[in-house]
């Protein structure tokens, strides 16, 4: 499996951080960066990471099954994550979540028909003092309101046209 030069460079840098014989440590970070390129974890990717990290594909597979950020299902170009954990719940996170599902017409871990946006109700994202928070990919949006969320979704939808 081949990656873009940037991803390839990143994967090699990650690989080199661990002592000889301990390359299994690179499995999770490598999957994270490889997934960023393809939008999902594929069988081909699992085989590739297994080869590079000197483990069996099954050992990679069991890791993919465990971590919530590794997805075998293709996610949208924008993965919108709404936090509804306690601190966000207190500040209206649930209302944001319901609004988003209604507006996009999709639910938890589902993708819009055009493949643009996927949605996830996430556990504490670590923005409690600036709640409620919505994360687009890796980008944090604090002090969210329904208006600000609509603006964010508008800008995502308009960027594509």
């Amino acid at each position: 499996m081949t990656f873009t030069p940037e991803t390839e460079q990143k994967l090699q840098a990650i690989w080199s951080r661990y002592p000889a014989g301990r390359k299994r440590s690179a499995v999770i970070p490598m999957l994270m960066y490889a997934q960023d390129e393809t939008g999902q974890v594929t069988q081909e990717m699992i085989a590739e990471v297994a080869k590079r990290c000197e483990v069996t594909p099954l050992q990679v597979e069991e890791v993919v099954g465990y971590y919530s950020m590794l997805n075998k299902q293709k996610m949208g170009k924008h993965h919108v994550q709404v936090c509804t954990n306690i601190a966000c719940l207190l500040m209206g996170g649930e209302e944001l979540w319901h609004h988003t599902t209604k507006r996009l017409g999709i639910g938890h871990k589902q993708v819009t028909a055009d493949g643009l946006i996927s949605l996830e109700e996430v556990e504490c994202a670590g923005a409690c003092s600036w709640a409620p928070c919505v994360v687009d990919g890796y980008e944090y949006h604090h002090h969210m309101t329904i208006e600000k969320l609509d603006q964010l979704l508008d800008s995502i939808e308009n960027k594509v046209q």
Binding site: S25, A26, V27, G65, Y66, Y67, S68, L70
Partner: peptide, 25 residues
């Protein structure tokens, strides 16, 4: 640096070490 992949359990010290070794946390 070492990136995790979304698991609260990995904040627990022994699970973190498992995860750092490339296993389930």
């Amino acid at each position: 640096t070492h990136s995790g992949a979304g698991a609260y359990e990995c904040g627990e010290e022994s699970a973190l070490l498992e995860s750092l070794e490339g296993k389930r946390g």
